[in-house]
Protein backbone atom coordinates (compact mmCIF):
# COMPACT_ATOMS: atom_id res chain seq x y z
CA UNK A 1 0.00 0.00 0.00
CA UNK A 2 1.68 3.19 -1.12
CA UNK A 3 -1.40 5.45 -1.14
CA UNK A 4 -0.05 7.70 -3.87
CA UNK A 5 -3.49 9.37 -3.77
CA UNK A 6 -2.72 10.85 -0.34
CA UNK A 7 0.90 11.71 -1.13
CA UNK A 8 -0.29 13.58 -4.25
CA UNK A 9 -2.50 15.74 -2.04
CA UNK A 10 0.37 16.87 0.19
CA UNK A 11 1.29 20.55 0.02
CA UNK A 12 5.05 19.76 -0.17
CA UNK A 13 7.47 19.05 -2.98
CA UNK A 14 11.15 18.21 -3.34
CA UNK A 15 13.48 19.08 -1.69
CA UNK A 16 11.07 19.29 1.25
CA UNK A 17 8.90 16.20 0.78
CA UNK A 18 9.78 13.53 3.34
CA UNK A 19 7.23 10.81 2.59
CA UNK A 20 7.80 7.86 0.22
CA UNK A 21 5.00 5.50 1.13
CA UNK A 22 2.12 4.94 3.48
CA UNK A 23 2.17 1.38 4.79
CA UNK A 24 -0.91 1.37 7.05
CA UNK A 25 -3.72 3.83 7.64
CA UNK A 26 -7.05 3.83 9.48
CA UNK A 27 -9.05 6.15 11.76
CA UNK A 28 -6.67 5.57 14.69
CA UNK A 29 -3.17 5.37 13.24
CA UNK A 30 -0.83 5.74 10.29
CA UNK A 31 2.48 4.14 9.39
CA UNK A 32 4.72 5.46 6.63
CA UNK A 33 8.32 5.55 5.53
CA UNK A 34 10.95 7.76 3.98
CA UNK A 35 14.48 7.02 2.78
CA UNK A 36 16.78 10.02 3.14
CA UNK A 37 18.70 10.60 -0.08
CA UNK A 38 22.48 10.55 0.13
CA UNK A 39 22.57 14.10 -1.23
CA UNK A 40 19.76 15.89 0.66
CA UNK A 41 20.57 19.62 0.61
CA UNK A 42 20.97 19.96 4.39
CA UNK A 43 23.83 17.45 4.59
CA UNK A 44 26.04 20.13 3.02
CA UNK A 45 26.01 22.04 6.31
CA UNK A 46 24.82 19.63 9.02
CA UNK A 47 27.49 19.00 10.05
CA UNK A 48 30.76 20.17 8.47
CA UNK A 49 32.28 17.00 6.93
CA UNK A 50 29.95 14.88 9.07
CA UNK A 51 26.51 14.54 7.47
CA UNK A 52 23.72 13.65 9.94
CA UNK A 53 20.00 14.29 9.45
CA UNK A 54 18.98 17.33 11.56
CA UNK A 55 16.46 16.75 14.36
CA UNK A 56 14.17 19.40 12.87
CA UNK A 57 14.07 17.41 9.63
CA UNK A 58 13.24 14.20 11.53
CA UNK A 59 10.46 16.15 13.26
CA UNK A 60 9.30 17.43 9.86
CA UNK A 61 9.28 13.89 8.46
CA UNK A 62 7.18 12.71 11.43
CA UNK A 63 4.83 15.66 10.96
CA UNK A 64 4.46 15.10 7.20
CA UNK A 65 3.47 11.47 7.78
CA UNK A 66 1.81 11.69 11.20
CA UNK A 67 0.05 15.03 10.72
CA UNK A 68 -0.29 15.95 7.05
CA UNK A 69 -0.91 12.50 5.49
CA UNK A 70 -2.99 11.33 8.45
CA UNK A 71 -4.91 14.62 8.62
CA UNK A 72 -5.72 14.57 4.90
CA UNK A 73 -7.02 11.01 5.33
CA UNK A 74 -9.14 12.01 8.35
CA UNK A 75 -10.50 15.13 6.59
CA UNK A 76 -11.61 12.93 3.67
CA UNK A 77 -13.27 14.96 0.90
CA UNK A 78 -13.04 18.23 2.81
CA UNK A 79 -9.33 18.55 1.99
CA UNK A 80 -8.72 20.66 -1.10
CA UNK A 81 -5.11 21.53 -1.84
CA UNK A 82 -6.11 24.73 -3.62
CA UNK A 83 -8.16 26.08 -0.73
CA UNK A 84 -6.68 24.53 2.41
CA UNK A 85 -3.35 24.62 4.15
CA UNK A 86 -1.72 22.98 7.18
CA UNK A 87 0.46 24.21 10.03
CA UNK A 88 2.37 22.43 12.74
CA UNK A 89 1.24 24.06 15.96
CA UNK A 90 3.37 22.32 18.58
CA UNK A 91 5.78 19.48 19.10
CA UNK A 92 7.72 17.87 21.89
CA UNK A 93 10.37 15.44 20.74
CA UNK A 94 13.07 13.19 22.11
CA UNK A 95 15.84 11.82 19.90
CA UNK A 96 17.65 8.57 20.55
CA UNK A 97 19.72 7.61 17.47
CA UNK A 98 21.34 9.50 14.58
CA UNK A 99 19.97 9.07 11.04
CA UNK A 100 22.66 9.05 8.36
CA UNK A 101 22.45 9.85 4.62
CA UNK A 102 20.71 7.04 2.71
CA UNK A 103 18.96 5.65 5.81
CA UNK A 104 15.32 4.58 5.74
CA UNK A 105 13.02 5.52 8.60
CA UNK A 106 9.57 4.24 9.52
CA UNK A 107 7.14 6.65 11.19
CA UNK A 108 4.15 5.58 13.25
CA UNK A 109 1.55 8.01 14.56
CA UNK A 110 -1.29 7.25 16.94
CA UNK A 111 -4.20 9.67 17.18
CA UNK A 112 -4.72 11.37 20.54
CA UNK A 113 -7.57 13.45 19.14
CA UNK A 114 -8.85 14.96 15.91
CA UNK A 115 -11.31 17.75 16.67
CA UNK A 116 -12.20 20.99 14.89
CA UNK A 117 -9.52 20.24 12.26
CA UNK A 118 -6.76 19.98 14.85
CA UNK A 119 -4.87 16.69 15.02
CA UNK A 120 -2.72 15.66 17.97
CA UNK A 121 -0.68 12.46 17.76
CA UNK A 122 1.90 10.43 19.62
CA UNK A 123 4.61 9.85 17.02
CA UNK A 124 7.41 7.29 16.83
CA UNK A 125 10.28 6.94 14.36
CA UNK A 126 12.21 3.70 13.88
CA UNK A 127 15.20 2.74 11.75
CA UNK A 128 15.38 -0.44 9.66
CA UNK A 129 16.77 -2.35 12.65
CA UNK A 130 13.47 -1.46 14.37
CA UNK A 131 15.37 0.63 16.91
CA UNK A 132 13.59 3.77 18.07
CA UNK A 133 15.14 6.92 16.61
CA UNK A 134 12.74 9.56 17.93
CA UNK A 135 9.54 9.75 19.92
CA UNK A 136 7.22 12.57 20.87
CA UNK A 137 3.99 14.47 20.48
CA UNK A 138 3.03 16.56 17.46
CA UNK A 139 0.00 18.77 16.87
CA UNK A 140 -1.14 20.46 13.71
CA UNK A 141 -4.12 22.24 12.27
CA UNK A 142 -5.75 22.36 8.85
CA UNK A 143 -7.38 25.62 7.81
CA UNK A 144 -8.83 27.43 4.82
CA UNK A 145 -6.23 29.72 3.22
Amino acid sequence: MIREDIIQKLPYSKPFLFVDEILEIDEEHIKGSYTFLKDEYFYQGHFKNNPITPGVILTECMAQIGMACFGIYLLKDVWDQEKWSVAMTSNEMNFYKPVFPGEKVIVKAEKVYFRFNKLKCNVFMYNTQEVIVAKGIVSGIAFKK
Partner: peptide, 11 residues
Protein backbone atom coordinates in the same frame (compact mmCIF):
# COMPACT_ATOMS: atom_id res chain seq x y z
CA UNK B 1 -4.73 32.72 22.02
CA UNK B 2 -3.88 31.01 18.70
CA UNK B 3 -6.41 28.93 16.78
CA UNK B 4 -4.73 25.62 17.73
CA UNK B 5 -4.92 26.49 21.42
CA UNK B 6 -8.51 27.62 20.99
CA UNK B 7 -9.25 23.97 20.21
CA UNK B 8 -7.51 23.00 23.48
CA UNK B 9 -9.66 25.52 25.37
CA UNK B 10 -12.80 23.89 23.91
CA UNK B 11 -11.59 20.36 24.76
Amino acid sequence: INSANLVDVIL
